[in-house]
Write a protein that binds this DNA or RNA. Structure first.
Lengths: 340, 340
DNA sequence: TTGAAAGCGCTAACAG
DNA sequence: CTGTTAGCGCTTTCAA
């Protein structure tokens, strides 16, 4: 470590008063003579004194750190949510410690344990796509250590969470496709154990039902959210004897992989195959055709997650709330078939 | 804070030994009886003991935290570099505290001060685009607190840094344009005080010189790196009486804004205007035409920055090194004019 | 109005 | 081989 910084002791020595006097003066304790107070504060200022957070943390048993675990750092979705969390954290004078599970259960487990070791005051987590067993959160739940899930969630009766209106969003997507002339709507979903897969699937079914479209199981595929797998699955869909005229992709990666694959087959978007994804603003507008997409209020989701966290800090035993965020379907070109 | 966790004291009390015995046993000190050691370690395990990092930090004056300041969190470039930093940090049993300057000098200043207050052991920083005055790093430099810059750097004679081979990369870009038939090559740069603007500009000039192309000052524009400004500037370029037949954009944002703008004007890429950007893998391939781009080894840059940081930790006064990373020009379609 | 002492959890020097 | 003590920086009784 670099040179030791000035401590209360240093200030006290310099002024020939006791440490406690300095401590009090700096916090404007009324007991201390106004003049002395001023003098001490001036010296502190001059010497560039800042309280040592480690000492405070040790004393009060609080670190003012929140651990955040996301499936990856490089996706805009998570980056933006993290921004939202950071925003609220900063307002509460908290810092965030970010860990990435890289979509691996093992790394998620490891991160939970490591962050707890560093004595974060709690965790805000989005599950990795592999996570299918949720016991590793027991130590948090049993010890009343604040925990909040977002987007990909579990144990929602025990843990507060922030999710998108997945079912409703997927239902809207399906209906939008129908209204634009699509009749064979495919859905490329994620791992079946994830709530986002389940809920969007449910919305897809409701949408089909609304439009009185038949359900065809060969149009629903599960993918592991990697580009390769999404490409493979798109190719499979395009090789059906009766290919889909629309594809609904569960996220960024999936829909862009599908887009590339469709183009390579020589089919046109949206006329041969219309496309809608769950994705962010930026990507959707730089591709050609621009992508119709369900947009999450990511920054807001992060803020809400952090808010839930601080609710938890002040009352770790309150009944867990779930916040559902409204998404919006932003219609661009990839879903608008030119009617003949 | 949640329930207090078990401490050495708790373990000691339970076994009727002293705290120091427990402490030693847990660290396998040879002085302690093998049997006692085993017994203590078993209990620690059973009670789920983990050492309190605050206490350790206080004792050793080290927090094992690195502050990282980036211009933004949502750009792939920074996200990926952060991943690299995190990777090395974890290997050294360090954590990173991330702050975003949101390209604002004020926020950068604030972040530097806040992070120092939390007693990070040092900082790894990429300057905000507004940063034109570098005094706020004095407290670090004067107190031998480890500091490393990456990408956008300053005071390189005092502070170790990691940069791309900006000049060389820009030179290659210019020559590549020339070899593909471009003769009026525009350069949309960033704020002129940034090293990346200066060095890429220099490379651009060298490239022109290599190809014996005349320099035309109306083809060089500075932008504030926002989408709006980049669009505005592209429009300006497209309104010249003699419009450019190629545009070289200093980063992601700029080049995609240019791309959109060109399309809206009805011009084609690459035949009317060829395009090359400094950008990441993913974006480049999802657009149509796919984007020829200078690619940074971002993850590696992060790793190198972290390595420099740890060099600094072990010897805060060593002469600062600068590491230059090789970029590569990945040729795709946006720069390949179909020769007539 | 100020100081002395204890304690947060831990390690290390010194005793025994 | 194990215990006692001091101290990292700070707040907070309790005394004066």
């Amino acid at each position: 470590m670099a040179k030791r910084r000035v401590s209360l002791k240093d200030l006290a020595a310099e002024l020939n008063v006791s440490i406690s006097t300095v401590s009090r003066a700096l916090r404007n304790h009324p007991d201390i003579r106004a003049e002395l107070t001023r003098e001490i504060q001036e010296l502190a200022r001059a010497r560039n004194y800042t309280p040592n957070p480690l000492a405070m943390g040790l004393l009060r048993q609080e670190t003012h750190m929140i651990g955040v675990i996301v499936p990856d750092l490089v996706t805009h979705f998570y980056a933006s949510i993290i921004s939202g969390i950071e925003y609220v954290a900063k307002q509460n004078d908290y810092y965030i410690l970010i860990a990435s599970s890289r979509e691996s259960f093992g790394k998620e487990l490891e991160s939970v344990q490591n962050l707890l070791k560093t004595r974060v005051e709690g965790l805000i987590v989005c599950l990795s796509q592999e996570t299918n067993c949720f016991d590793h959160f027991d130590p948090l739940i049993n010890n009343e250590i604040p925990l909040v899930f977002f987007d990909r969630v579990c144990r929602t009766d025990e843990v507060p969470s922030v999710v998108a209106d997945n079912t409703e969003a997927a239902r809207k997507v399906t209906r939008h496709f129908y209204e634009n002339g699509c009749r064979r709507i495919a859905f490329i979903s994620g791992p079946p154990h994830l709530n986002i897969s389940q809920q969007r699937y449910e919305g897809y079914l409701l949408g089909l039902h609304d439009c009185k479209l038949p359900f065809d199981e060969e149009l629903v595929m599960h993918c592991d959210l990697s580009t390769d797998d999404a490409s493979r699955i798109t190719r499979q869909l395009l090789q059906l004897k009766n290919i889909p005229d629309a594809i609904f992709g569960i996220n960024d990666t999936v829909i862009f992989a599908a887009m590339k694959e469709i183009r390579q087959t020589g089919l046109t978007i949206p006329n041969d195959v219309a496309l809608i994804g769950f994705t962010g603003e930026f990507h959707s507008t730089i591709v050609e055709p621009s992508l119709t997409a369900v947009t999450h209020p990511t920054f807001e989701m992060g803020k809400e997650a952090a808010n839930l966290f601080f609710e938890r800090i002040s009352d770790p035993t309150a009944a867990p709330r779930q916040i559902e965020m409204k998404t919006s379907l932003v219609v661009r070109n990839s879903s608008m078939k030119k009617m003949l």
